[in-house]
Amino acid sequence: MARRKFAALKRFLDYIGLEGDRTIFTWISASEGERFANVIKGVTAKVRALGPASKLVNKL
């Protein structure tokens, strides 16, 4: 069910014009420490390439 919700959310955010790479979803078990580190490295690399977010940001 999480997978279904995410599939719909990712498509929808992409549709309204948010960069698709900003919504990232994956499965990690609590015991997979190394995999967790790798995923986060991948995520930060993707987000760095996109630069700071300017959409849907609440300016306080």
């Binding site: 069910m1 997978r3 279904r4 599939a7 979803f25 994956t26 995923v39 490295k41």
Partner: peptide
């Protein structure tokens, strides 16, 4: 309702897997 069930072969090509 589609969000209260799942099927084994639902699409999962969006899952991030570095």
């Amino acid at each position: 309702p589609p969000l209260s069930i799942f099927k084994e072969h639902d699409k999962e090509d969006f899952i991030f897997n570095p």
